[in-house]
Amino acid sequence: MDDYKYLFKVVLIGEAGVGKTCLVRRFTQGLFPPGQGATIGVDFMIKSVEVNGEKIKLQIWDTAGQERFRSITQSYYHSANALILVYDVCSQLSFDNIPHWIQEIEKYANTKVFSYLVGNKIDQINRREIPSHIGEQFAKRYEMKFIETSAKEAENVDALFYDIATELTKQAHQQALETDKGVNFKAHNTSTISSCSTCLRF
């Protein structure tokens, strides 16, 4: 009866205008919305993927980067299974603010949250300000995974979300082994929904 095995909550955070919404759109709808306006508050998308034959449902919460929505967006970190911290490789400023975001994560998110550092907009080769290795070093220092993407060219976007799904599934399996049954991840409203999901494209 289950139409998916695990449900994971993924939250995207980062400065305004780094391309969080575009990443999500690219992944869930396969399109790159030109002239995407600033997100208001939080946006929500759902997407099912398959990892090793198991159906995984990803709830993706796409938060606004604008400062004024900070208080509502922070409240979404709390229950996240994975956080995607996005910066713009063409904007030194968005990269400089990352330590600040990491503090936010430490403050509001679960301690063991799986976090990913993502440098977006790599299609803009001429305007790049942050070299790849700098981002990578940074991610290593904070024990985050690192990837560079382009929502516009659909580069690494699927890879990013699949990697998250795979990693979280692995964690869930381990947990299931430890606690005998996968209670923790399946606890809430995730069981028994029949037939397949609408958004399934893969």
Partner: peptide, 17 residues
């Protein structure tokens, strides 16, 4: 019974753009 999802989702809807 859990309402987390509902709170989250309804809040998102309230910010619909």
């Amino acid at each position: 019974r859990r309402y987390d999802f509902f709170v989250s989702k309804f809040s998102v809807m309230s910010h619909n753009a």
